[in-house]
Write a protein that binds this DNA or RNA. Structure first.
Lengths: 224, 224
DNA sequence: TAATAAAGTTAGGCTAACCTAACAAATTAA
DNA sequence: TTAATTTGTTAGGTTAGCCTAACTTTATTA
């Protein structure tokens, strides 16, 4: 059935693959479940079951009934391509069109589905082959290769030491606006002043200013 | 039913409105018929009948059974907005990404459906508020205003006189590549050397080179 | 003006992507 | 190790946008 000589996937199919890729990053393992996929895509599990049959037909995912879902090599290729487009567009919006950090994601969600290899290549060139998007996430190159994902978050840093913010995990507008409000940004140095035993509330110092942030917040800031 | 405080139209609905606007330009009148609309959209007349009911519900078009179709003021506003986006994206692709003249249309057909007012505004600014796209067609401004459409084509020019090419009517790749091959482009001077009585074949001189073009071709070159 | 042709509509069907409700399998806890 | 909970599937239904086939209205032309 699948010709493999470049099928054109629907908007929806691309989103399923992208979501699976995201889950495989987050879970560490290459696997994902129906429910978490449904939650991420804001659809019902039954809908996911339907779609998985189709994606399996097309040899984009692999799974057996009641088992875990994994992307096939082909499926992953398509997913990475969408991710590449998403991050290139984010970079374009941020660097060329003067969008703010927290505005780019939503629009890139639409732009990532434009089908034109030439467009992606030319955009990549226009942006001078960027390796990271405005959120600090790596941009896959044409071959699908990219720098490794960060794992250490602000919540993992020891009290009294410092670290450098390199990316964010949560791309929601709400979160990003909060980040900005705290005076934080990519490559900023963060010093952990103290940590509350009870609820892991952190006191951090950024550019000389001390703020308090919750554990939840800290888990969404990648650092080195 | 229609809230009028900015409904979000589907990809398909936008294409119907855009097609109606195009037909109203081409026909001179503000009217269009079911069949020509179907032909332009590559769907069957029955499909158009269905969709027209929906667009009428939403107060985007006006028509009565077996009557002519016209855009409402609101419908036209949406159509012009799509046209604006289409031509801005074409300009972007041509000027910033180095696409060739005949490649921009197809990709812009996709990009024109991205929903983000901010994106359009920023793109417009980035391109320095262009008034014409790479094909010589006027780009509506934010208010929907644009320079008048050209009406005179190369086929209307008298033998022995000259004219200046200002735009093309056909945006197909095939046509545009042919235009390029003839050494023609926007703002080029064309001299009509002679015209065959029998089939209206034209002999034209462009940059000192004489070529023969059919009537069909001549009708797709706008001139002043 | 009556016959034919063209244009447009309706009815009934299809597919993709969603849904709810009912069920089955797998996991966790008692 | 059985019971309860979570997770996943199936069955049947909806809507948007398309189709074909049959029909009706309007326009053309003999």
């Amino acid at each position: 059935m699948p010709t493999h000589t470049a099928m054109i996937l629907s908007y929806t199919e691309e989103n399923y693959l992208k979501a699976l890729l995201k889950l495989s990053f987050e879970n560490g393992t290459e696997e994902a479940g129906t429910n978490e996929l449904a939650a991420l895509l804001s659809v019902k599990p039954a809908t996911v079951s339907d779609m998985l049959k189709k994606l399996k037909e097309k040899e984009l995912v692999e799974y057996k009934k009641y088992g875990k879902i994994t992307l096939t090599v082909i499926g992953k290729k398509y997913a990475i391509d969408v991710l590449r487009k998403h991050r290139l567009w984010e970079t374009f919006l941020y660097e060329k069109l003067d969008f703010s950090w927290d505005e780019v994601h939503e629009v890139a969600e639409q732009l990532e589905h434009i089908h034109s290899e030439k467009l992606v290549d030319k955009l990549d060139k226009f942006l001078a082959y960027p390796q990271f998007d405005p959120h600090g996430d790596p941009i896959p190159n044409k071959k699908g290769e990219m720098k490794v994902h960060y794992k250490k978050t602000l919540a993992d840093v020891a009290v009294g030491t410092s670290c450098k913010m390199v990316a964010v995990k949560d791309n929601s507008s709400l979160f990003l606006q909060y980040v900005v409000k705290l005076g934080l940004g990519i490559n900023n140095k963060i010093h952990i002043v103290s940590k509350q035993e009870y609820d892991a509330l952190l006191h951090i110092k950024v550019n000389g200013v001390i703020s308090s942030v919750s554990q939840k917040f800290a888990e969404n800031i990648f650092v080195v």
